[in-house]
Design a protein around this nucleic acid. Structure first.
Length: 343
DNA sequence: CATCCGTGGGA
DNA sequence: TTCCCAAGGAT
């Protein structure tokens, strides 16, 4: 199987900006960006990132805010914060030497089994199998594995299989090959089984279960949240706040927020429930939108307000609207600010 | 271990 | 419209 996938890869490999590169910094950046992110989405972010932070020293010496600005819109913002922490550790505590062993890489923030396998195999020729979404699909089909892949036991089992398949003298080449194979050939929708070089040995192909692999056991429930944002716009200045690390959109900026337990459509009702005792001269609903996160559905209302609503809000910061572009915002707020100020 | 953490694209 | 999920990891 290994050799057939390598052969397939030599004919069908994709040309990617980080490919044919063994610099652990470059590979690390690309792997973190690509976590749960489609390649097409990741490529422009990778280019921006490397241009801004061409080496690990520049990243280690950067500010959280400028890093998040590069990451803005990509999601899973903890990835960026973890990268900064790890860059500092490597540069300042490890004599600027990138760890080259799987087990040592695993100790770093933001590097789990997949990323440790990728870096150690691609950059340092360690024979550890990468197991990402593509590999789960290829292996559960090839071996017709019907155990749910989101269970710990199945994960261990597939990691072991993946490790045994890394027999090639260039483990990193093989690891990238099986991922490309899963992405292009053994893809989720309409896999090209008719021209697949593995179809004679593929157990799911024989059993006609290809489209049912892999099996997942979970169903997730989307919690609803109601966010009310207030734009306190005063002579070309607005108030923004920085979110903390406890919740969604870690360390990103947002407008003054009141989270409610239901949706409000009128000023009177919202005012009555949340600022009955405050004087608000003018308040108006500007925009409503819904925004889906992987586990939450956000119902967002943007209100224009004239009194500044100072008291319940900590860490508040007044900025000129020309400074907006310097701050990283979550996607829906970015959209709103664009709508509001580009009229 | 189950749940949390973003966003965009495809069916 | 709604659901799934993509070069996953932390807690």
């Amino acid at each position: 199987m290994t050799e057939q996938i390598i052969k397939w890869y030599n004919k069908n490999k994709r040309d990617l900006p980080w490919r044919d590169n063994k610099d652990p910094y470059i590979i690390w950046v690309s792997e973190i960006i690509l976590q749960q992110t489609q390649i097409k989405t990741g490529i422009p972010y990778f280019k921006k990132f490397i241009k801004k932070f061409p080496n690990i020293e520049s990243l280690a010496n950067s500010q959280e805010k400028e890093l998040l600005k590069i990451w803005e819109g990509l999601g899973y913002y903890n990835r960026a914060l973890n990268m900064l922490e790890t860059a500092k550790i490597i540069v300042f505590n490890l004599n600027n030497i990138f760890p080259n062993k799987y087990q040592d890489l695993l100790k770093l923030k933001g590097i789990g089994s997949y990323t440790a396998a990728a870096i150690s195999s691609i950059c340092f020729d360690q024979k550890i199998g990468v197991v990402d979404g593509n590999v789960y699909r290829v292996l559960t089909r090839y071996y017709n594995i019907e155990d749910p892949i989101n269970q710990i036991g199945t994960k261990r089992k597939i990691q072991e299989i993946a490790n045994k398949l890394v027999t090639h003298k260039k483990p990193g080449l093989y690891n990238q090959a099986i991922m490309d194979f899963g992405s292009i050939q053994c893809k989720k929708h309409e896999p090209k089984c008719d021209i697949c070089p593995l179809k004679n040995k593929c157990k799911s192909f024989k059993a006609n279960t290809v489209k049912f692999r892999p099996v997942k056991s979970n169903k997730k429930y989307q919690k609803k949240r109601y966010l009310n944002y207030f734009i306190c716009c005063n002579k070309k200045k607005i108030i923004i706040n920085q979110r903390d690390s406890s919740n969604i959109w870690k360390k990103l900026y947002e407008l003054p927020l009141i989270e409610t337990n239901k949706e409000y459509s009128t000023i009177e009702a919202l005012q009555n429930d949340y600022f009955k005792n405050k004087k608000v001269s003018k308040m108006q609903l500007l925009q409503k939108m819904t925004h889906h996160l992987s586990h939450q559905k956000l119902i967002i209302s943007f209100w224009l307000i004239e009194s500044q609503l100072n008291e319940p809000i900590l860490k508040q910061k007044m900025i000129h609207i020309s400074e907006i572009q310097n701050f990283p915002f979550p996607k829906p707020i970015q959209k709103f600010l664009q709508l509001f100020f580009n009229k």
